[in-house]
Amino acid sequence: MRTAPRLHTMLSLEQAVGGAPSLALLQERIRTSQHCLQLVRPLIPPALRQHVKAGPIQDNEWCILVASAAASTKLRQLLPAMQQVLIQNGAQVNAIRIKVQIAAR
């Protein structure tokens, strides 16, 4: 039995995400996390900024990914100021978690 030929249509990532509600929700969470990082970035010492990445945000808890335990320690000192900046800018973040992300070799 022969099936009708399929048309192979190329979709942009935006189009694919727009057609899948679960992907759209994931994309929104990624944008929110990146926005949070942009809000607190001025508080992070310049030498440390390259070692900090926006991590997942879930249930109003935002995770910051860092490259080392030393970076984690320094960021923990900044958590109260970061939380204040997020609140002042209307971010719906009740807690910030810092996770050391070990680079793959």
Rank of each mutant, 00 (worst) to 15 (best):
M1E: 11
V66G: 09
D59G: 04
L48G: 03
N89C: 14
P80S: 01
E14T: 14
V40K: 07
R6K: 08
N89D: 09
R41Y: 07
R41K: 09
P56A: 10
L79I: 14
K74A: 12
S12Q: 03
R29A: 13
Q83I: 09
A47F: 07
K99Y: 03
I98E: 00
L26I: 15
R31F: 11
A20I: 12
L39D: 07
H8I: 13
M82Y: 04
L25M: 10
R41M: 12
H8W: 11
L11T: 02
A67P: 07
R6Y: 04
C63H: 09
G55T: 01
A47R: 10
N60P: 00
M10Y: 08
E28K: 06
I30K: 11
R41Q: 06
L13Q: 06
Q34E: 14
A54Q: 00
Q38A: 13
R6H: 05
S68C: 12
L75W: 02
R41A: 05
A67S: 15
A67Q: 15
L7N: 12
A24V: 11
V40T: 06
Q101F: 12
P80L: 00
R105D: 14
A54I: 00
G90Q: 14
R105C: 10
L65I: 02
P46H: 06
A69C: 14
K74S: 06
E14Y: 05
Q58W: 13
A70K: 10
K74D: 04
L75C: 10
V100L: 14
A69W: 03
R31I: 06
V85M: 13
A70I: 15
L13A: 11
H51A: 15
D59N: 11
S72F: 05
R97P: 08
L7Y: 08
H8P: 01
P21I: 13
C63I: 10
M10V: 10
M82K: 00
R29H: 05
A91V: 13
R6Q: 07
V100F: 06
L86G: 05
L23E: 05
E61F: 01
G90K: 13
H8C: 04
Q92A: 10
P21R: 05
A54C: 04
L39N: 04
S72I: 02
A4Q: 07
S72T: 04
L25Q: 14
P21H: 13
A24F: 05
R6C: 05
E61D: 01
N94E: 08
S22I: 09
T32A: 11
L25S: 06
A24C: 06
R97K: 15
Q88I: 04
S72V: 03
A20Y: 12
L26E: 12
C63S: 04
A4S: 11
I44H: 01
L48F: 09
D59H: 03
P56Y: 09
Q101K: 15
E28Y: 01
L39P: 08
M1P: 07
I102W: 11
A16D: 02
A54R: 00
A103D: 12
V93Y: 00
A103V: 12
E61C: 07
H35G: 10
Q77D: 02
T73W: 03
S68F: 11
G55W: 00
R76H: 15
W62C: 02
A67Y: 06
P42N: 13
G18R: 13
A71Q: 05
I57K: 00
Q38V: 03
L79N: 02
V40D: 01
P80G: 01
K74F: 08
I30N: 06
I44L: 07
L48H: 13
L13V: 04
V17H: 01
I44A: 03
Q77C: 14
L75H: 08
Q84F: 09
V100H: 14
